[in-house]
Computed example of a mutant assay.
Amino acid sequence: METRQRRLTGRPRGFDADEALERALLVFWEHGYEGASLATLTGAMGISTTSMYAAFGNKEELFRKVLERYSEGPSDYLARALDESTALGVVTAIFAGVVRTTTRPTGPNGCLGVQGALVTGDASRGARDLLVAWRDSGYARLRERFERAVDGGDLPPEANPALLARYVTALAYGIAVQAASGVGHVELQDMADAALRSWPLC
């Protein structure tokens, strides 16, 4: 009995966890949280439901891991944009990143973080709250960056960092929604460029 238990507990995982997580990301990105059934997820991941629970937890925990991967992968343009030397550079990089990410020639269009759980029932409240926190975090980081820009003289002293951050995030999310509806890269970049032309400058 002990020998058999050692074989079971010591058995190596029969799949690539990183690849399975990447496939789950694409399913959630394309179908949203509620639209991604366990059968669709495990089929795309190439594993059984039992293996999914063992490796990633339940569906909500899997979604949490997917969102972390999304933040570090397709959505990492935000972190890089915040390192730009000027506020205008930050916004330019954010708009370029969101247009690029949401209109990829292969894979889902739109933004997982915006559309993943906009409309969900009570059973999916955890996923919805997770995405609200994810979006709020992005807004807060951008607001803080604009506050530093005001303090450093890069933005006019009368500029409102909170309002500017809300404006930029709202436009970025709007771009993502339009991309999911089939609006193309060129048109969305033109819209972003129009917003940049009215950016407050010293």
Rank of each mutant, 00 (worst) to 15 (best):
G113D: 04
Y70R: 01
K65F: 06
T102N: 03
K65Q: 15
G89Y: 04
A117S: 15
V114E: 06
T103Q: 05
V114A: 08
V119I: 15
S75I: 05
A117H: 08
C111I: 03
A96S: 13
P108S: 12
G89D: 07
P108A: 10
R100Y: 06
R100W: 06
L78R: 09
G121K: 12
T102L: 02
T101C: 04
S85P: 12
T86V: 05
V114N: 01
T92W: 02
V66M: 08
L112I: 10
A87G: 10
P74S: 13
C111N: 09
T101V: 07
L78W: 11
G121P: 11
Q115P: 00
V66C: 07
T106N: 10
G73M: 07
S71R: 11
F95L: 05
G110C: 06
Y70D: 11
T92N: 08
D76C: 15
A81H: 02
P105Y: 07
G107Y: 11
G73S: 14
P74G: 09
R104T: 13
E84D: 13
P108C: 10
A117G: 14
T101Q: 09
V99K: 02
C111D: 12
T106L: 15
Y77F: 15
S75L: 15
R69D: 04
D76E: 14
Q115T: 09
K65C: 06
G121F: 10
G107P: 11
S75D: 14
V90D: 01
A93D: 06
L78A: 05
T120H: 09
G97V: 04
V90K: 01
P108F: 12
L67K: 07
Q115S: 13
R104K: 13
A81Y: 02
A87T: 05
A123T: 07
L112M: 11
A93Q: 06
V91N: 04
T86S: 15
T92M: 05
L82Y: 07
G97I: 03
G73P: 06
V91K: 02
F95C: 01
P74H: 04
A96F: 02
Y70Q: 06
T101N: 03
E68Q: 11
R80S: 12
E72S: 14
V91M: 03
T102Y: 01
A96E: 14
F95Y: 13
L82N: 08
